[in-house]
Design a protein around this nucleic acid. Structure first.
Lengths: 243, 243
DNA sequence: AAGAAAGACTAACATTCATTAATCGCAGGC
DNA sequence: GCCTGCGATTAATGAATGTTAGTCTTTCTT
C-alpha cells in the first residue's frame, strides 16, 4: 500500500477524483511513523503543524477530565484511511489527544501542504471538509446511541460501526476483525464502568451474537447484532456523489 | 440587525475577515423565513439546495429513532449566529432534521453561492469549515458530558454551554437567558426520562444555583454551576487566530 | 517451575435512573 | 367563572448501572 492510498480509497468511495485531484494527493510529502499501544500520537492543546492519516491499527481521541486526571473519555475511534486530526488544521488547538490503541502506523501531512490544497484545489478542499463532517456524523450517532441504547445494544452498535468502517477500507471481512481494545478502554468509550462492559460483552456472547477472544472479534449473527443496535450505516455517508 | 450580521460576528470573534471576505459575505442573497415552535426547518434525508443561519430563537437537530417513531434524540442546539446545517452543503443528505424550539427566524443561503465561495475565497472557505468543526467539538463535549456527568451536573453543563454561546453573540447577559425548552425536550437532549430531568432541575434549584420559570433561566451561582459541570469553554474555540 | 502482573471475570451491595400513576398549577377557550 | 389540556411535579417501585472486593487465567519474568 503506497503513501496515502487508503485515504484516496476513502475519498473515491464517496466522490470522483479528477486527475488533478489525484495527482495532488499523490504528490503529498508525508512522514511515516509508528507508535506502540498507549503512546500519544497527537498531544492535546498544542497548535500542530501537521495532521495524521491512519495507515494501520486503531487510534482513539482521548479527553482528559479536568480535576480527575486518572479518568478519560474516548470520543472517537479511527481506522486505516481516516484523516484523524484533520480538524487540527483549522481549529485553534485540539481539546483532546490522539492515542494509539494497539500498534499503529500513521502518515503525517504538513499543514502548509493543506493550505496549498485549500488555496488551489477547491473540489479537493470540499472532500477534506467532507471527511471531517463524516467524523461529526459519527459523533452524532454516538450521542444517539448513548441516549437511546442500553449496555448490550450500545456495545453492539459500536461493533457494527467499527466492522462496517473496517470492511469499507478492506481491513476486515467475513464478519471478523481485530479490535485491540481493553474492556477498560471500551468503558471509556461507552461511558460505563469496566465491570458493566464485561456484563455487556458476556450478554452478547451468551446470545450467540459474537465471539471475542483477545483482540479477535467475530460477529456470528450480523442480523441479530445490527437489529439489537438498530444499526443503520447511512450516517457513514458512503454513497457516491458529486460534491 | 442586517442580513448575516450575526454570522459575521461569529466569524470575527475567531479570525480577521479581509475586506474581500466581508464584502462577499455581505453580498450573499438570503431568504428570510420564520417558524413556529415544533416546525421542521430542514427535513431529514433530503439533499438540500440551501443551508440556514439562525437569526433569532433556538433550533435543534432531531434524530428520529428507527422502529420507535415517537422517540427522538436531540444532538445539537443552535443559537443566533450558528450556520445550522452548513454540513448539508457537503454531505449526501442529513441523517437528522432541524426543528424550531420556540419561535425561530432563519436565513437560507443557496448552495450555489457556497460553491462560489469555495471556488474563489479560500480563506472564507476555511472559516466556513471551522464553523462546522466547532459544531463537532460541541458534539464531542456532549459525549464527554454524557459519559462522565450524572444528571444534575449534566444538565448544569448544558446550561453553562448555552449561556456561554448566547452571551458570545450578545443574545444573553447578566447570567439570564431565554430557553424555551420543555422538560420533555431536555430529556431528548440529555438522554434521561422527563421525570429524571425534573429531578435534576429541582436539584439545581434546591442548591440555589438557578431559577427557571417558563422559558426564563437565571444562573444565580455561576461558579457553583460551572464547577459542578466541570465546564471549560475552550472547546467553543472562541480565540482569535489566523486560519 | 515459581512468582508477579495484567486483564478477564464474578458476586454482593449501593446508587442512579426508568416506569407508572397520580396530583398540581397555569393558561386558553367558552 | 368554569372547564380543559398541557406541562410541571411528586411518590413508589423496579431495572440498569456503579462500586468494592475479590478470584481466575494467561503471560511474562526470573
Amino acid at each position: 500500500m503506497a503513501i496515502t492510498d487508503y485515504f484516496i480509497r476513502y475519498l473515491q468511495r464517496r466522490d470522483t477524483l479528477s486527475a488533478e485531484d489525484l495527482s495532488r494527493l499523490r504528490a503529498l510529502r508525508t512522514e511515516n511513523e509508528t507508535f506502540a499501544p498507549g503512546e500519544v500520537i497527537v498531544p492535546v492543546d498544542r497548535i500542530a503543524q501537521r495532521s495524521c492519516m491512519m495507515l494501520r491499527g486503531l487510534s482513539a481521541r482521548s479527553h482528559q477530565l479536568v480535576g480527575r486526571p486518572e479518568e478519560r473519555v474516548i470520543t472517537a475511534l479511527h481506522v486505516p484511511g481516516d484523516f484523524v486530526d484533520l480538524h487540527g488544521f483549522v481549529l485553534a488547538g485540539l481539546e483532546h489527544s490522539v492515542v494509539a490503541v494497539g500498534p499503529v502506523e500513521v502518515e503525517f501531512v504538513s499543514h502548509d501542504q493543506l493550505i496549498d490544497i485549500t488555496e488551489n484545489f477547491p473540489h479537493l478542499t470540499r472532500l477534506l471538509w467532507m471527511a471531517t463532517l463524516i467524523d461529526a456524523a459519527v459523533h452524532r450517532q454516538w450521542l444517539v446511541a448513548a441516549a437511546s441504547l442500553r449496555s448490550s445494544a450500545h456495545l453492539a452498535h459500536l461493533l457494527c460501526e467499527i466492522y462496517t468502517r473496517l470492511n469499507a477500507v478492506g481491513a476486515a471481512g467475513d464478519h471478523r476483525f481485530s479490535l485491540p481494545l481493553l474492556q477498560r478502554e471500551l468503558a471509556d468509550i461507552l461511558g460505563y464502568s469496566p465491570i458493566h462492559v464485561n456484563r455487556a460483552v458476556r450478554d452478547l456472547r451468551d446470545r450467540g451474537m459474537i465471539t471475542w477472544s483477545g483482540a479477535d472479534v467475530k460477529i456470528l449473527d450480523w442480523t441479530g447484532l445490527s437489529g439489537l443496535a438498530r444499526f443503520d450505516a447511512t450516517y457513514l455517508d458512503m454513497e457516491q456523489m458529486s460534491r
